[in-house]
Design a protein around this nucleic acid. Sequence first.
RNA 1: GCCUCUAUAGCUUAACGGAUAAAGCAACGGUCUUCUAAACCGUCGAUCUAGGUUCGAUUCCUAGUAGAGGCACCA
Length: 614
Amino acid sequence: MFNIEQQIIEGKIKGFCAANDIPLAELKWQPIPFSGEWGFATSFFQTAANEARAGKGGKPVPQRAQEMAEQVKGQLGSVPGISHIEAVKGYLNIYFETSEYAQRVVDEVLSSGADFGRGTKKNERVMVEYAQPNTHHSFHIGHARNTILGEVLARLVEFAGFETIRASYPGDLGLGVITVMWIYEKFYKGQEPVGVHERGQWLAKLYVEATSLLEKKENETPEQTAQREVYEAERREMYRKWDAGDEHVRELWRVTREWSLEELREVLKMLDVKMDVWFYESDVDEPSKVIVDELIARDIATDERPQGGAVIVKIDEKLGLTKEKYRTNVLLRSDGTTLYLTKDLALAKMKFEQYQVDRSIYVVDVRQSLHLQQAFAILKLWGFPQAEKCHHLGYGFVSLPEGAMSSRRGHVVLFKDVADEAVRRVLAVESEKSGDVPVSEREKIATQIGLGALVYSMLSVDNNKDIVFDINEALSFDGRTGPYIQNAYVRANSILKKSKVEEPALSLSKGQKSGDLRPSTFDYELTKHEIELIELISRFPQTVEQAANEYRPLVMAAYAYDLANAFHSFYHAVNVLQTDDAKIRNARLQLVMAAKQTIENALRLLDIQAPEVM
RNA sequence: GCCUCUAUAGCUUAACGGAUAAAGCAACGGUCUUCUAAACCGUCGAUCUAGGUUCGAUUCCUAGUAGAGGCACCA
């Protein structure tokens, strides 16, 4: 978008090297990494090394690289839009003509508005699967990491130009679910707490209690043992009835399952997540059995049930691998019931066939890495070409300072509790810090800020790293946090409000000009803060692309902080409204608008709200 | 036993194989009659060890150390 000069210069360098028989390596451009400097750079080390390898020269590589940079510089002459060029330490540094470049960047942002940074439309459909909590349990802070990562990834991929489908896959069956139903039926039948979250969390408490009742304890009395065995038999019987389609058990399942799903939908709403597709484990249970039959028929799976075993796939053997990689896994238990892996095969088939996806991203805990690799390998054996386009985005799990979370034991930190606490903490400081915020708005803005802090804390760690959850860190409002970025947005907004510049100026459609204000002219000596800010704004489009290509929300999170940081510094050092020269004041107002718009776009991609005041 | 991931400042984290390793927190010192100080400016402080590849390694490879995780009827 901002690389016309780069292309011109690249052409000239290639011409020069061809004419002088220099084996030019691929030209890699980067921003000049010194603050306040403004332009782009490339180095000639690789080219010099190529030359040396070809037996020419004989000079040390750095020296030869510098020589080349100087020669190229001599050949370039003057290039429109470029103020000056220097050759230093083997690098060629090319500096922009500030006024023109600044104007181009700012105008681009203002004319594109909410679309600034959007990638060109790609002809590819991507499905992102995330938010796969179990029903009858609780949505804890680990699920929150998953959901936030998935949602932000979906937003990035979508904004980068891909058609994107968001999919949730709640686990609504299995022994854990039956366990909750058993204790409900036995001890709590007919009870139902008021409130969506209360009811959902109550099921999680029942699960803990049930687990404890069913667990073998040390030094059990014979009576206790007998009691436990009775309970266990009841639970097994309920599982059997569920499997057989017993109407009463199925109804109990439907009702309690809905309690959980209602809470999940409520949580997703809090996080502004709108799912396109809901898959349930129970939907793919039966279809997956059909698949196993086919795999057995095609000799991909081996049926060892006649010998009292299970249905298995010797994945390495079938793929012809000699080294152990995917190992062997079970598709059906010896009793014929399905497993997680089995259901994932049916789910993938559904994604490929019903939704015609070209690429499928699974946002799943890194501990399930082998399982997913096994699933993808079996899909390949089965003959799905899209199996190559299945990608597991693993992320490190969230634990507590006292150890791993456990739904079974009730050792969890619930997302809802943290979110509530976040709002409380913001409200506690709001009266002293936010004189501007109308009382009626406080709750809403406190929610935006509190969740902003929480969400950002989840995004600011690379996804392959584990997180030890510390509520004080997650809900910090100072420094590299969500509220810091929100505050930059608020400050920009505040300047614009006071300047009486109307918002519509920001939403001009392409090609329109707002007469008196634009085009902005930056033909004065820019401060280094302005240069830095414009530089960062101009990098937004490529940051979107990088974050989407690498599946790394962190890249966008880091960028958003850098951008906000540049704005805060600018805000502090450069006065906008009190600038005497009307033209400069105008240009700076344009820059503030562009910064506000870019921060807004970045926050939106990060699933963080942008409050007007705070 | 096999496999995967991680190791950077006191703590939490960044850094397409390139120039001076970047932030936040904590500590210390400054900045509010100013477009709101949830901010700004400054000081202190780091690449686990040993080899290798490369003109150049925090980054790639090998080995080691330390931590986390996974490995056939849980999800």
